[in-house]
């Protein structure tokens, strides 16, 4: 049973009179527990595809099933609920809220899930422990290194027990050593907790951590190989 199933997905952006075909009919399936790398030059449509898979955007046509739920015709709030429960995001720029402590940042998804303050704190501490930051909970993002910030973001992605993590260039702002640490955490989550990881990158050595690599060019998949 595929956790993600995309059928003939297209995405067209209208820029005034010109229509830009960002995706021209992409079909693929991702099984639960896979570690997938998505590669391609900028403008290849990989980011657009990620946004659709991440329920941040809707396809122009085609069908997208996430755990067998048809996402294509859900409204804003239903999509928000799916992002909350099913999907964790790890971004290149970390995207932590600067005025909140690490702990509060990790609590954020639970805040929108109606979980009690006590439980939020417990779960957040546990998630921070998983990424090795249990002693940094009360630090603010600007008091943390880039690698630590990215680990807080991973903890935030984990905290609602989402089955899928989308990592969009997660090591783009990090040095080589820290990149290795971050990738190791993602690999561990994939192997130990059976979390599906979908990684967008343009670096070969980072893509090398994944077992399946899908390459995009000009809005369609040009290769899809399992290694």
């Amino acid at each position: 049973m595929a956790i993600i199933e995309a059928q003939e997905i297209t995405k067209v952006y209208s820029l005034g009179d010109i229509d830009v075909n960002a995706l021209t009919g992409v079909s693929l399936a991702i099984e639960k527990g896979e570690f997938v790398g998505i590669m391609g030059p900028s403008g290849s449509g990989k980011s657009t595809f990620m946004n659709i898979l991440g329920c941040l955007d809707k396809p122009t046509s085609g069908k997208y099933l996430l755990e067998n739920i048809d996402i294509s015709d859900l409204n804003r709030d239903k999509l928000a609920a799916i992002r909350n429960k099913k999907i964790g995001f790890v971004f290149q720029g970390f995207n932590l809220l600067p005025r909140m402590s690490a702990l509060e940042n990790v609590e954020l998804p639970m805040l929108y899930d109606g979980i009690s303050a006590k439980e939020r704190k417990e779960n957040a501490l546990e998630a921070l422990k998983k990424v090795g930051l249990e002693d940094r909970g009360y630090h603010h993002p600007n008091q943390l290194s880039g690698g630590q910030q990215q680990r807080v973001a991973i903890a935030r992605a984990l905290v609602n027990n989402a089955p899928i993590i989308f990592a969009d260039e997660p090591t783009g702002n990090l040095d080589t050593k820290t990149s290795v640490e971050i990738m190791k955490i993602l690999v561990d989550l994939n192997t130990q907790s059976n979390i599906t990881v979908i990684l967008v990158t343009h670096e070969d050595n980072i893509a090398a951590y994944s077992r399946r690599i899908i390459k995009f060019l000009d809005g369609s998949v040009i290769s899809d190989e399992i290694r």
């Binding site: 941040l56 804003r76 928000a80 992002r83 954020l108 998804p109 609602n160």
Partner: peptide, 8 residues
């Protein structure tokens, strides 16, 4: 960011 983690 809030929307991406599920704010309605």
């Amino acid at each position: 960011i809030r929307m991406s983690v599920g704010a309605k």
